[in-house]
Simulated assay, not measured.
Amino acid sequence: MGLINFISGKLGKGEPIEVVFHRDGKPMEQNHVRRVFKRVLKRAGIRELRFHDICHTFASLLLSNGEGVGRFI
């Protein structure tokens, strides 16, 4: 599936567009990203953590350093 079709399908359903890409430029399935992330956490000895939690941590760090988050959204 090409990127244009992928994004068009998401927009048509009113879904948010959150995309991570393979090296070949094709979008990864959300479950693949989640599985890899959980495997990395386990290997690193980190308790269960949602990928979304990292986004909030990043935003909090930006704000605590006087930066705005608007340009990253």
Score class of each variant (00 low, 15 high):
Glu18Asn: 15
Lys10Trp: 00
Pro27Leu: 02
Gln30Pro: 06
Arg39Lys: 11
Gly14Ser: 10
Val40Gly: 02
Leu41Tyr: 09
Arg35Ser: 10
His32Lys: 13
Gly14Glu: 09
Glu18Phe: 13
Gly12Leu: 05
Gly25Glu: 03
Lys38Asp: 08
Lys10Asn: 09
Val33Arg: 00
Arg23Thr: 11
Glu29Ser: 09
His32Phe: 14
Arg23Met: 12
Lys13Cys: 02
Val20Trp: 05
Lys42Gly: 10
Met28Ile: 07
Ile17Ser: 05
Ile7Ser: 11
Val33Phe: 03
Gly45Val: 02
Leu11Arg: 13
Val20Asp: 01
Pro27Lys: 00
Val33Asp: 00
Gln30Tyr: 10
Ile7Asp: 11
Gly14Gln: 10
Lys26Arg: 15
Lys13Tyr: 05
Lys38Trp: 05
Lys10Pro: 01
Asn31Gln: 07
Ile17Phe: 11
Leu11Met: 15
Lys10Leu: 12
Gly12Tyr: 04
Gly45Ser: 06
Val19His: 08
Val33Ile: 05
Met28Val: 03
Leu41Pro: 05
Lys38Phe: 05
Glu18Val: 14
Leu11Ala: 14
Val19Gly: 07
Leu41His: 10
Gln30Glu: 12
Glu15Tyr: 14
Val40Arg: 13
Pro16Phe: 08
His32Ala: 15
Asn31Leu: 06
Val20Arg: 05
His22Ile: 01
Met28Gly: 01
Ser8Arg: 15
His22Lys: 12
Val40Gln: 09
Pro16Glu: 13
Leu11Cys: 13
Ile17His: 06
Ser8Phe: 15
Asp24Val: 01
Phe37Leu: 01
Lys42Trp: 08
Asp24Asn: 14
Glu18Pro: 01
Val19Asn: 09
Gly9Lys: 03
Glu18Arg: 14
Asp24Leu: 01
Gly14Leu: 08
Lys26Pro: 00
Arg23Lys: 15
Leu11Pro: 04
Arg34Asn: 10
Arg34Val: 08
Lys26Tyr: 09
Lys38Gly: 03
Arg43Gly: 10
Ile7Gly: 06
Lys10Tyr: 02
Val33Trp: 00
Lys10Gln: 06
Phe21Ala: 06
Phe21Asn: 02
Val36Ser: 04
Pro16Gly: 03
Pro27Gln: 01
Glu15Asn: 14
His22Leu: 04
Glu29Trp: 04
Phe37Glu: 00
Arg43Ile: 07
Gly45Lys: 05
Val40Cys: 14
Glu29Arg: 12
Glu29Lys: 11
Glu15Pro: 03
Arg39Val: 03
Pro16Gln: 07
Pro27Met: 00
Met28Phe: 05
Lys38Met: 07
Gly25Cys: 01
Pro16Trp: 02
His22Ser: 05
Val19Met: 12
Arg35Cys: 04
Ile17Cys: 13
Gln30Thr: 07
Arg34Gly: 08
Arg43Val: 01
Glu18Asp: 15
Phe37Tyr: 04
Gly9Met: 02
Gly9Val: 03
Arg23Val: 13
Ala44Thr: 03
